[in-house]
Design a protein around this nucleic acid. Structure first.
Lengths: 334, 334
DNA sequence: TTTCCGGGATACATCGTTGCAGAGAAAGGC
DNA sequence: GCCTTTCTCTGCAACGATGTATCCCGGAAA
């Protein structure tokens, strides 16, 4: 049996509630009493039972993080930073992998997962705003990413359009004119893929370069798909002098395929990505990409969520935060 | 207020305890009663309160996973697989990042983190077996990795020595004679670094190739350190025709540095790694490495831990499991 | 001296479950 | 027809903490 508050109370010769008061920094306790209780706690090695505390208080000190796949480098790095930011403020993060399955996402909103957490960081991929709205209870929820942009929800995101436009402009300014895009999600206009593609088109337009749909290859955002999508373009005889992978793993997969085929990077084809995962810096050649301000995203989203939980943030409508971005010009597209 | 068992009981016209019995699949309930309770549950949208259940039962249905850094690809992939394996059996995984800090590791063994979980998957890096033994309570703990190999603890690991020897032999068999090693941890003999280095030396010995300490570069296992360590060797004028990174990110960092310096891989220098992270397949050139059976490790460690929790595994001494390995011969060292 | 006030401590109920013990009814054995 | 066993369901206590209400006491005010 573990040591309980009762044991401490007995040892200190005070009531149960006084021990509780000491632990919760209640204002009016005589210093001597407080000391006695603290000594007893130290002596017995008492540790508060978090489960009991949760039951009574209704708080768990855990935040939920729903994402598709923790093994994707972007999510792994993000999760790591979120956990550190949360830990600094006394919270833990419980991760749920959805595999982009709608059913999992829905369950995360109302099932046991929700119960275990005081608030949710949610990266929806399969469900839409109304589905979320219908199921989200009164517990705070902050959207991450851009699949759902809706005034009803708090949102922390990045400048997808602007950053994609900036990197496209960079490619254009180095003389590239036929820039293939890998990782489009046809029909999508709000998600990351849609916004980044939009940024790409905006940049082309500004530069007066015509948009060629043949250059756009759809792909689910995984490394292997980056390679196959690029292979598809080459095999179809599409000609291009640059590749913009809508995220880094796609770009790296494409880079790999180019090198297999003996296409020189950046001489024959320049390659750019998006995310600036650790790996991008050390690819061969190193990958030109966009750093979307992951540190800022982690800090702000944890901050916003905790403000909602504490009731410090009271905006009736969703707060939208956009982190800044930074181009990382490297060897693959100088 | 959420719907409680009491509400369900009232709605179904049975006692609180009967509802509990239905939920816990108690044997002796009339089908009609069971049905009535289930209907009431469905109608009211009742969901069991996990916190209350935990308090009463002493189980949380969560497993703890302690590792140094979730953003390291190997750990990210492992965590992802562990979470999936656990989810299949009705458990969640709560991750704690230790940053290889002893204090964090110790706290994970006894603090709140331990309380929140029914069992621990532990990758110790900073503390030793006695420190663990002194603090580990009665809750099950399974060691992952090889920093601590001790008959007192359950352990799921990989064939570090054998696999490292196999890949070294592969390099030797392709004619390489001076194989640099990156990522050694001086003075360590039991951890992954120590065992893999040991395997390397064994293979050299068997092949009758002399061991040259100058070829061994220490490095903490991160990509950037792989690059700097390799640069150090080159700058020191050490000559070699192959590089064995003790894990993949080290090898990839080294690969990057080689390419910056214009060293051709594999023509001038072959490169091999260890872990077979997703990235290895798509590096340029693709990375020869060892797949350490991560799926098996994930399955077996979750299985073992849950067996301990359920009391199905009763061996008084630690159970040691070693997953099989497989060489992945790719372009960087054909 | 009495009254009032606020600091300092306490008792009790409560959060929503599950374990234990037991009650009542039906079924089986002689 | 009685006793035992099996089934079905119930009530109460308990898990370990916190919120509310209350009580006691010493000093200030009347």
């Amino acid at each position: 049996m573990a040591v309980t508050m009762n044991d401490v109370a007995r040892a200190a010769g005070v009531s149960l509630k006084t021990v509780s008061n000491v632990l919760n920094d209640y204002e009016f306790i005589r210093p001597a009493t407080k000391q006695r209780v603290q000594d007893a706690i130290a002596e017995l090695g008492y540790e508060a039972n978090l489960t009991a505390r949760s039951l009574r208080s209704g708080k768990t000190s855990m935040l939920g993080l729903v994402l598709s796949d923790l093994s994707a480098p972007y999510y792994a790095e993000l999760a790591s930073k979120l956990m550190k930011a949360a830990a600094q403020r006394g919270y833990r993060v419980l991760v749920e992998q959805s595999d982009a399955e709608g059913s999992v996402e829905l369950n995360a909103l109302q099932g046991p997962f929700r119960q275990l957490t005081d608030g949710l960081l949610f990266t929806p991929l399969a469900i839409d705003a109304d589905a979320v709205a219908a199921r989200v209870g009164k517990k705070p929820l902050v959207m991450l990413g851009e699949h759902i942009v809706d005034p009803r929800f708090d949102l922390v995101t990045m400048k997808n359009r602007e950053a994609a436009a900036a990197i496209t402009t960079h490619l254009l300014s180095s003389g590239r004119r036929r820039i293939a895009v890998i990782g489009a999600h046809p029909g999508e206009s709000t998600g990351s893929a849609g916004l980044r593609l939009n940024g790409y088109r905006t940049a082309l337009e500004e530069a007066g370069v015509p948009f060629d749909p043949a250059l756009v290859a759809p792909a689910v955002w995984r490394r292997d798909n980056g390679a196959t999508a690029l292979a598809g373009l080459l095999d179809a005889g599409v000609r291009f002098d640059a590749v913009f992978g809508l995220n880094d793993v796609l770009a790296l997969g494409a880079l790999h395929e180019l090198q297999i085929r003996g296409v020189r990077v950046p001489q024959d084809v320049a390659v750019a990505g998006f995310d600036d995962i650790d790996e991008a810096r050390f690819a061969s050649p190193s990958l030109t990409t966009v750093s979307p301000g992951m540190d800022e995203i982690a800090e702000r989203s944890i901050g916003l969520l905790l403000d909602r939980i504490a009731g410090n943030e009271t905006a009736a409508t969703g707060v939208h935060v956009e982190a800044g971005f930074e181009l990382k010009i490297r060897e693959s597209a100088p």
